[in-house]
Protein backbone atom coordinates (compact mmCIF):
# COMPACT_ATOMS: atom_id res chain seq x y z
CA UNK A 1 0.00 0.00 0.00
CA UNK A 2 1.37 3.43 -0.92
CA UNK A 3 1.44 6.50 1.28
CA UNK A 4 -0.95 8.19 -1.11
CA UNK A 5 -3.50 5.43 -0.64
CA UNK A 6 -3.24 5.84 3.14
CA UNK A 7 -3.72 9.57 2.77
CA UNK A 8 -6.81 9.02 0.64
CA UNK A 9 -8.29 6.61 3.17
CA UNK A 10 -7.80 9.12 5.96
CA UNK A 11 -9.34 11.81 3.77
CA UNK A 12 -12.38 9.60 3.05
CA UNK A 13 -13.01 8.88 6.72
CA UNK A 14 -12.45 12.51 7.78
CA UNK A 15 -14.27 14.36 5.03
CA UNK A 16 -17.27 12.05 5.04
CA UNK A 17 -17.24 11.74 8.82
CA UNK A 18 -17.46 7.95 8.74
CA UNK A 19 -17.80 7.20 12.42
CA UNK A 20 -17.86 3.43 12.48
CA UNK A 21 -14.93 2.79 10.18
CA UNK A 22 -11.18 3.34 10.49
CA UNK A 23 -8.94 4.30 7.54
CA UNK A 24 -6.97 1.05 7.79
CA UNK A 25 -10.18 -0.96 7.47
CA UNK A 26 -10.75 0.25 3.93
CA UNK A 27 -9.23 -2.09 1.33
CA UNK A 28 -7.55 -0.27 -1.55
CA UNK A 29 -9.32 -2.28 -4.23
CA UNK A 30 -12.72 -2.30 -2.53
CA UNK A 31 -15.47 -0.41 -4.40
CA UNK A 32 -16.32 2.83 -2.60
CA UNK A 33 -19.82 3.37 -3.94
CA UNK A 34 -23.03 1.40 -3.58
CA UNK A 35 -21.45 -2.00 -2.86
CA UNK A 36 -18.29 -2.18 -0.76
CA UNK A 37 -18.08 0.90 1.41
CA UNK A 38 -21.59 1.89 0.35
CA UNK A 39 -21.08 5.59 -0.29
CA UNK A 40 -23.70 7.54 -2.23
CA UNK A 41 -23.73 10.37 -4.77
CA UNK A 42 -23.65 13.06 -2.09
CA UNK A 43 -20.52 11.43 -0.65
CA UNK A 44 -19.01 11.55 -4.14
CA UNK A 45 -19.55 15.31 -4.22
CA UNK A 46 -18.03 15.76 -0.76
CA UNK A 47 -15.08 13.59 -1.65
CA UNK A 48 -14.50 15.39 -4.94
CA UNK A 49 -14.36 18.72 -3.15
CA UNK A 50 -12.11 17.33 -0.41
CA UNK A 51 -9.66 15.86 -2.94
CA UNK A 52 -9.64 19.07 -4.90
CA UNK A 53 -8.72 20.98 -1.75
CA UNK A 54 -6.20 18.56 -0.29
CA UNK A 55 -4.23 17.76 -3.43
CA UNK A 56 -4.84 20.97 -5.32
CA UNK A 57 -5.70 19.16 -8.53
CA UNK A 58 -8.26 20.40 -10.98
CA UNK A 59 -11.14 18.18 -12.02
CA UNK A 60 -12.45 20.43 -14.75
CA UNK A 61 -14.26 18.70 -17.51
CA UNK A 62 -17.49 16.83 -17.33
CA UNK A 63 -16.77 13.29 -18.39
CA UNK A 64 -17.53 9.73 -17.48
CA UNK A 65 -13.95 9.11 -16.40
CA UNK A 66 -14.87 10.59 -13.06
CA UNK A 67 -16.82 7.48 -12.16
CA UNK A 68 -13.91 5.22 -13.06
CA UNK A 69 -11.50 7.34 -11.05
CA UNK A 70 -13.72 7.37 -8.00
CA UNK A 71 -14.29 3.61 -8.08
CA UNK A 72 -11.79 2.67 -5.37
CA UNK A 73 -8.94 4.06 -3.29
CA UNK A 74 -6.53 2.52 -5.76
CA UNK A 75 -8.09 4.16 -8.80
CA UNK A 76 -8.25 7.48 -6.95
CA UNK A 77 -4.54 7.24 -6.13
CA UNK A 78 -3.71 6.57 -9.78
CA UNK A 79 -5.90 9.47 -10.85
CA UNK A 80 -4.31 11.91 -8.40
CA UNK A 81 -0.80 10.81 -9.36
CA UNK A 82 -1.44 11.23 -13.07
CA UNK A 83 -3.05 14.61 -12.49
CA UNK A 84 -0.13 15.80 -10.39
CA UNK A 85 2.35 14.71 -13.06
CA UNK A 86 0.36 16.43 -15.74
CA UNK A 87 0.27 19.67 -13.79
CA UNK A 88 3.89 19.57 -12.62
Amino acid sequence: MTDLETEIKILIVDSLMLEDIKPEEIASEEPLFVEGLGLDSIDALELGVAIRKKFGIKIESVNDDIKTHFRSVQSLAKFIESKKKAEA
Binding site: A44, L45, L47, G48, V49, R52, I59, E60, S61, V62, I66, F70
Partner: peptide, 8 residues
Protein backbone atom coordinates in the same frame (compact mmCIF):
# COMPACT_ATOMS: atom_id res chain seq x y z
CA UNK B 1 -27.01 17.32 -12.70
CA UNK B 2 -24.95 18.38 -9.74
CA UNK B 3 -21.72 16.43 -10.25
CA UNK B 4 -18.32 16.78 -8.59
CA UNK B 5 -17.08 19.16 -11.32
CA UNK B 6 -19.96 21.59 -10.93
CA UNK B 7 -19.73 21.39 -7.16
CA UNK B 8 -16.02 22.13 -7.13
Amino acid sequence: DIGPETTI
